[in-house]
Amino acid sequence: MKDKRLVIYAVISVVLLLSPLFLNAYWVDVLNNVGLYTILALSLNIILGHAGLFHMGHAAFYALGAYTTAIINTTYHIPILWLLPVSGLVAGLAALVVARPIIHLRGDYLLIVTIGFVEIVRIALVNNVFGITGGSNGIFGINRPILFGWKINKPWEFFYLIWGFAAVTIFLFNRLENSRFGRALNFLREDDVAAEGSGINTAHYKLIAFVIGAFWAGMVGNIFAAKMTIIAPESFNFWESVVLFMIVLLGGRGSIRGVILGAFLVLGLPEIFRQFATARMLIFGAFMVAMMIFRTEGILPPLPRKYPIAKMLGREGSA
């Protein structure tokens, strides 16, 4: 069973890896968007899927990362990819400051506070806060990233940058999921009080989850800024946060493969439905409802955690 799944994953990866060879620039760019949202949604998945915190303001951290990159790059001309960790740090730091006082709020109250946060960030950007965000015009003239002397410019070049980043993200987050930390998060998601009782400092863990998610979203903001070369507040409105929220839940909370599939569906379907012109979003909405009705826990919910004791014992026995 496990081997079969591995084969499927390998086939999908290879097809994806080769796809720029037989897709035109438009579809490659669709895949780029899917890739960006995959990474974003995976970072939200840590907060929403694993820690179970209702967070509907993820676009705020994404925006902070993108604006950090844009501002520093256009004023000091520091190469884009050097700013990758800086963008992450700014977003992570913001998450730490913002989340500290609100982390204890119960589900839906946290939801509205995070919505409030993303709106405050957007309004601040629109109103040209500190005179550095360029108001509603946004910031333009952002450089293209240069990787080992290769200037990344064309959609297919971005494709490999983005999906390379996505692969690293998937690997790291998979490790995180199966670490002590990941298990602790799942525990406090299922039962906050019991987790606290078992000696897990829940507020601390929730906060770390928040900061990791925000850090990652900030880094995606960096790549987004470099890809678009212009960023404006509209790209980071509340609706973007809702889209990310939908990706995680549609795919399956806490499931990496589910989230990836969710990103493909939420970003890809409106493109496929383009042939329906003005009715495309109507069909998309109906599709979402139908999907949730038929797969109530998301399309690919996480597999139950398995602890292969037999194997472990067997290994000990043979030793």
């Binding site: 438009y26 790209s235 493109e271 383009r274």
Partner: peptide, 21 residues
């Protein structure tokens, strides 16, 4: 050949990619 830009920059970038091919 008509493409929808949704009135938002990200969708517009996609529409432009689509039209330019």
């Amino acid at each position: 050949v008509t493409e929808d830009d949704g009135g938002d920059p990200r969708t517009a970038a996609l529409a432009a990619q689509r039209l330019s091919t």
